[in-house]
Design a protein around this nucleic acid. Structure first.
Length: 710
DNA sequence: GACCTGCTGCGGACTG
């Protein structure tokens, strides 16, 4: 029987009505697996390949009869905007089958939530944080709601693999499965995945072999790409770059990705000025997390509905699958920090059938040119950073312990331990450390032991966390000032971006003058202005994978040319290569550039290995620090540096050796890292930040060479 | 020298 024939009459009818010529390859493959196996699935394929329908058509065919009376499917999404996007799509599919679809996230009204709880049926679309809120606030209803769930669909599942939020979701789904009469089958929808082992055990730790990963790479789209280097010598972006951007986007719908929010503002205003000179109306729209939600939704709507060549300038806020219509070209200003990010952004274009994928890269500095080339070459090689998971998640466990004590309304110590043991995502945490954490939490009043019964409940300090709306998410968020024009919200500014009355700034692509600042309420009142400077926001610098830095060194040591770059890129690359060519450096070497005062070690490896090398050097008394954006290590001139690196290479390190050499601001920080106690915080740092074996391997693999300045 | 994600319940005023 064909995949189509397997579907229910209602689903077939819907497919006819939608006038599909055929099912997509991923749908052909998925449908029989849903019907004929009991496997969990990860469906991985490109944008617009019909993944959502691949999962939903067979699932709804199977559950449609029972879905009138009970909740059968949970759809988990990392974004509220995706829930809203998908709601309409799913509603369409369900048109003939009367399956109810319920949205549950922070913007959904209490009355709708109540109505769902009174009659939980059909499909529930929800975020991880809202599942948490059900455990905290509706614990008496959990069985009634979840008992008949057969399927859990996790959209954009790759966004959960390597972070605390993913651990949080896993923990919630394990807790939820307890309330279902039989364990629900899980279906993940994903962009390209690597590291199948991790993916399988992430989805089903007890039976990873029960997970099938469908990875359809088949992208028959033709990718056309070009890199333009324009050296930036001033704080402002070069006019030449803006004019080229204007040229490229005059007749096309584009997404322009920037690496920070301030640059989004600068580029939007710059491009609108150029368009204005040509007598065009508003053509460029900014999109990032510090622009008010209403404004962002408006931009998404304009991009989806407009047939005119309008463009959106964005940060990674538009990296996941929020609908912005058919994009003809993707533009990236300065290199992304990962290959997977560039791939993901690339996937935003060419949704139209038979359309090519177009990509324009710009670089504005020498190191960025090299990194842009390295990342692009790795895309061409079809390499992507493998998932690594989130190690020793004591911070999430801390939050989940409070949540479990709330859910159970008091639980005896052995049962609490059983509860934790039943959550596989915490398997890497030793029993003794679970006990350490619970004792610590009791000592600090996050938990409390009731005299007599011995039951553990949420303590006073825990109540304080639990009763704040900040409890539900496990990731950190920064304090920002709200920017208002009278009563209208414009967006937000970072606390560290200090302004005074009368100062001018750009926000949401418009120019403002500060009228008044209310520090108590954290509000900035503004009025329209004719000029302004771009805002800056503070954030953690992230990690770069070793392979990208290795590729950069390979490019610097080679004489290969790249056919997709402009003349300025060629000459800049040649200049950058000179000192390596002159010294006949090979990619199997790493250079320590030396003058009388200072040495600069170009490790050209990943961020975590570089940091570990810094801590190792400090152990031997070398006052090392990371110098700049290329992860170079600098330290005062040391005559015997080769000997020290030999010692590092040959020492049998234990983790405790390095702990005293981690400076205050270098410790891993997460939402609850301050609350879990010093001992566990150090363990978390060690597990996530120390790369001792990798650093030693690095020193064994590469030959270090000192080159004296001439 | 990054980026992004999420969010309750309750009391009180007001509207139809």
């Amino acid at each position: 029987m064909s995949s189509f024939e397997l579907l229910s009459a209602n689903m077939k009818r819907k497919i006819w009505e939608m006038k599909w010529d055929s099912l997509t390859p991923i749908q052909e493959k998925t449908i029989p697996l849903v019907f004929h196996t009991q496997n969990d699935l990860v469906i991985s394929s490109g944008t617009a390949s019909g993944k959502t329908e691949a999962a939903l058509l067979p699932i709804l065919s199977m559950v449609e009869k029972d879905a009138m009376h009970a909740l059968k499917v949970i759809y988990v999404s990392p974004l509220k905007a995706l829930i809203n996007n998908q709601f309409e799509r799913i509603e369409k599919i369900c048109e003939h089958s009367d399956i109810a679809i319920h949205r549950w996230h922070g913007d959904v009204s209490q009355s709708k939530k109540k109505r769902f709880l009174e009659n939980p049926t059909g499909i529930l679309q929800i975020t991880p944080e809202s599942i948490e809120s059900m455990f905290v606030n509706r614990s008496n209803l959990l069985r009634a709601v979840f008992k008949d769930v057969d399927f859990i669909i996790i959209d954009e599942i790759h966004s959960f693999f390597d972070n605390a939020r993913g651990v949080h979701l896993r923990s919630l789904l394990s807790r939820l499965a307890k309330y279902a009469e039989k364990p629900p089958r899980q279906i993940g929808l994903s962009a390209t995945v690597d590291n199948f082992e991790l993916v399988k055990s992430w989805l089903n730790y007890e039976q990873p072999d029960n997970v099938e990963v469908l990875n359809i790479k088949g992208n028959d789209k033709n990718l056309k790409f070009h890199l333009m280097h324009v050296q930036q010598d001033a704080p402002m972006l070069p006019l030449e770059l803006l004019m080229d951007l204007r040229e490229l986007t005059r007749d096309r719908k584009a997404v322009v990705f920037c690496n920070n929010r301030g640059q989004v503002e600068e580029v939007t205003v710059g491009l609108n000025r150029l368009a204005d000179r040509e007598g065009m109306g508003e053509t460029y729209y900014p999109h990032h997390s510090s622009i008010d939600k209403k404004e962002r939704e408006y931009v998404e709507k304009v991009m989806t509905e407009s047939t005119l060549p309008k463009s959106v300038i964005a940060t990674s806020s538009l990296e996941l699958g929020i609908d912005i219509g058919n994009i003809e070209i993707v533009i990236q200003i300065d290199s992304t920090f990962s290959v997977s990010s560039l791939k993901q952004r690339l996937g935003r274009s060419g949704r139209k059938r038979d359309a090519d994928q177009l990509l324009q890269l710009y670089s504005t500095s020498e190191p960025n040119l090299i990194q842009s080339l390295a990342v692009m070459e790795l895309v061409i090689e079809n390499w992507v950073e493998p998932s690594t998971g989130y190690q020793l998640p004591f911070d999430v466990l801390f939050q989940q312990l409070i949540s479990i004590c709330q859910e159970t309304d008091g639980v005896r110590y052995p049962e609490l331990l059983d509860n934790i043991r039943a959550i596989p995502i915490f398997h890497s945490i030793e029993e003794a450390d679970v006990q350490n954490l619970i004792s610590h939490m009791i000592n600090e009043d996050y938990l409390e032991v009731i005299k007599g019964s011995g039951e553990i409940i949420v303590g006073l300090a825990g109540e304080k966390l639990l009763r704040s709306k900040d409890f539900y998410a496990v990731f950190m968020s920064s304090q920002e000032y709200e920017v208002m024009e009278n009563h209208k919200k414009i967006g937000k500014l970072d606390q560290s971006f200090i302004l005074n009355e009368g100062d001018n700034l750009i926000l949401a692509g418009k120019l403002w003058r500060v009228k008044d600042i209310d520090h108590d309420r954290k509000k900035v009142y503004v009025e329209k202005a004719v000029n302004g400077k771009k805002p800056s926001y503070s954030g953690f610098p992230g990690y770069i994978h070793p392979r990208i830095r290795e590729k950069m060194m390979e490019i610097l040591c080679s004489t290969d040319s790249f056919r997709y770059v402009n003349d300025s890129a060629v000459s800049t690359l040649n200049d950058e290569r000179k000192k390596y060519v002159f010294n006949e450096v090979t990619p199997s070497e790493r250079i320590i550039w030396s003058d009388r005062e200072e040495m600069i070690f170009e490790a050209y490896t990943g961020t975590k290995i570089t940091k570990t090398l810094v801590w190792m050097l400090r152990y031997y008394g070398v006052n090392a620090k990371i110098k700049d954006s290329t992860d170079k290590i600098s330290f005062p001139h040391v005559d015997v540096i080769q000997k020290i690196f030999n010692k590092i290479k040959n020492k049998s390190w234990v983790e405790a050796d390095l702990v005293p050499y981690v400076y205050e601001q270098e410790w891993l920080e997460s939402k609850y890292s301050k609350e879990i106690g010093e001992e566990l915080a150090i363990k978390m740092h060690i597990a996530n930040e120390f790369k001792i074996n990798e650093a030693v391997n690095f020193l064994q693999k590469y030959e270090l060479r000192i080159i004296e300045a001439t």
